[in-house]
């Protein structure tokens, strides 16, 4: 197994091409859930879990059922990719919802509407599609998905930490709420741009 290759994927998806701050995936929940640190961490965990499972399921479905070169019936069904992937994600989120409701009802209450909204989190579908576009192996896809989730959580936690402090700051009225969140995301994105110098020889 090519460990250095996996390391490149990990660093790439968390820092260099952070899913939120560089690839623009997962913005809606990012703005919505990043107001409190505790819900940000909970949401991040849920997203990492869903992303990894969804990438596993969608990779298997693509290569065993859709891609003519490797599927069990050899017919080109790649045009069904979008429908298949989103249905997988929707079912997974339903399932995760039920599990969290049973095992951690407090977290379930805290996440509220944002839990079912993981279905429409572009980062989840995005990473599943990226795994296929970049022709990753199964292991590479899982590593990519988990790293993407970690990167999303990292951006979320950083943002929540800052926004909690902002509650006591004197922000001009038009910028309060969502606009200032975007401006701060912009500054964080500039900081993350610094990672683009990272290379692995």
């Amino acid at each position: 197994m090519d460990l250095s290759n996996l390391l490149v994927i990990v660093v790439g998806s968390i820092l260099i091409n952070n899913f939120v701050l560089a690839r623009f995936l997962g913005i809606c929940p990012y703005i919505g859930v990043s107001k409190k640190l505790s819900s940000a961490i909970g949401m991040g965990m849920a997203v990492i879990f869903v992303m990894t499972l969804a990438s596993l399921a969608s990779w298997l479905i693509y290569y065993y059922l859709l891609d003519p070169a490797t599927s069990v019936w050899g017919v080109d069904l790649t045009f069904l990719r979008t429908i298949a992937f989103i249905l997988v994600i929707a079912s997974l989120v339903q399932f995760v919802e039920m599990v969290i409701q049973k095992l951690a009802p407090a977290l379930y209450q805290a996440l509220g509407i944002y839990l079912p909204l993981i279905t429409t989190n572009c980062a989840v579908l995005g990473v599943a599609v990226l795994n296929i576009d970049e022709s990753y192996t199964l292991i590479e896809s899982l590593v990519n998905a988990a790293s993407a989730g970690v990167g999303f959580t990292l951006a979320l936690i950083l943002m929540a930490g800052i926004r909690e402090r902002l509650d006591t700051a004197d922000i001009p009225k038009p910028l309060q709420g969502v606009p200032i969140a975007f401006l701060m995301a912009g500054l964080m994105a500039i900081a993350f741009l610094g990672f683009s110098g990272l290379s692995f020889g």
Partner: peptide, 21 residues
């Protein structure tokens, strides 16, 4: 690049809010 998108969006949203207010 990415930061430009965030900054522009933030300023545009702020402008819309300002007009509203």
């Amino acid at each position: 690049l990415a930061p430009g998108a965030f900054l522009t969006m933030g300023l545009v949203l702020g402008f819309v809010n300002w007009m509203d207010q």
